[in-house]
């Protein structure tokens, strides 16, 4: 297969126009799920077909693309989607958050604050926040139209009744611009505050469910909660074991078969930049990790 056989960024121009119209409508009505004619993509549903279509519709030859999967630039999903766009559009790619103009993400918002002009594209599996409470699509659409969101609080009520606190830790429902309740895709609730009044444009694509929605820059995004059980983000006991960062989202990594574990930054780019700047965590310099860091650094092609 040669790249010449494809239109720029895989999708034909009519399809891109259709998706761009949906995106414009989504931006005009923050948090509203706009139906679109999702195309078959050369990857299975669940691998980011929605995000890939949104990225393909907005990317231009001068853009610099970053793709992350669970915060990491070097996992399968991120590597293959980055490879897909290199092959079909030839755009420059990067792992650096501040160097990218378009960032496609699966389940994280980078730790480095986003800037005006950047676009964050989310891969969304299930766009409907009310889905597991109300299975009928006709009914959920009516509920959105009439702003009937009491049911969303029933879910949070159940969390507190069962666990003593709001136990929803990802896909935590938010209210966008004081109107639509929205599922922020399965990002950890740790990232919810980053969506609030972000200077970057945030686009959400759900390929299987054929929906696009958006948060324009500087839009209010409020996490739902109760007056006596306010929203709060996850907290970690120890800093990142590699770069010593605090106040970032950490992944647990099993390091041996004797119960040993470490907590490291989920955002691999953020961690590498900090280590390059001389920050060190308790396990920094351990032999198993120097190789991985070097490999990731060489992939930085920007």
């Amino acid at each position: 297969m040669s790249a010449g056989a494809y239109n720029f960024a895989y999708l034909d121009e009519q399809t891109k126009r259709m998706i761009r119209r949906a995106i414009l409508k989504a931006i005009a009505i923050p948090g509203y799920q706009v139906p679109f004619a999702s195309r078959e993509m050369p990857m299975p549903y669940g691998w980011g077909t929605g995000g890939v279509q949104v990225t393909a519709a907005i990317i231009g030859p001068d853009d610099v693309l970053k793709v992350i999967d669970q915060g990491s630039d070097d996992t399968t999903n991120a590597v293959s989607i980055r490879g897909f766009f290199v092959k079909t559009s030839g755009v420059a790619t990067t792992t650096r958050t501040d160097a990218a103009t378009v960032i496609q993400t699966r389940h994280r918002i980078p730790e480095t604050p986003l800037a005006a002009g950047q676009i964050l594209v989310y891969q969304v599996p299930i766009p409907e926040p009310l889905r597991f409470l109300e299975p009928r699509e006709t009914e959920t659409r009516t509920m959105h139209a009439l702003e009937e969101y009491g049911l969303m609080h029933v879910k949070l009520y159940e969390d507190i009744a069962r666990h003593g606190h709001i136990a929803t830790t990802y896909a935590y429902p938010v209210k966008v611009a004081g109107r639509y309740v929205m599922d922020p895709s399965p990002t950890p609730k740790f990232d919810n505050p980053k969506m609030h009044r972000s200077p970057a444009l945030q686009l959400f694509g759900a390929g299987r469910e054929k929906r696009i929605y958006a948060i324009p820059p500087h839009t209010d995004v409020v996490s739902l909660d109760f007056e006596d059980h306010p929203f709060s983000v996850q907290e970690f006991d120890a800093p990142c074991a590699l770069c010593g960062a605090e106040g970032v989202f950490l992944d647990e990594v099993i390091v041996d078969d004797a119960g040993g574990r470490m907590f490291v930054c989920s955002d691999s780019d953020h961690c590498e930049e900090r280590r390059a700047a001389g920050h060190e965590g308790t396990l920094a310099g351990a032999p198993a990790w120097s190789g991985a860091a070097a490999a990731a650094a060489t992939e930085d092609a920007s």
Binding site: L133, E148, G150, L151, H153, V154, Y157, E158, I160, A161, R162, F226, E227, D228, H229
Partner: peptide, 27 residues
Amino acid sequence: LRMTVSAGGNVGERLMAVGERHYGHIR
């Protein structure tokens, strides 16, 4: 009824639907 929601949640649903946002009061 919502069969997968607790008894308290079932009774509280209407309260939340009309804007009650205090868990203690609802319960």
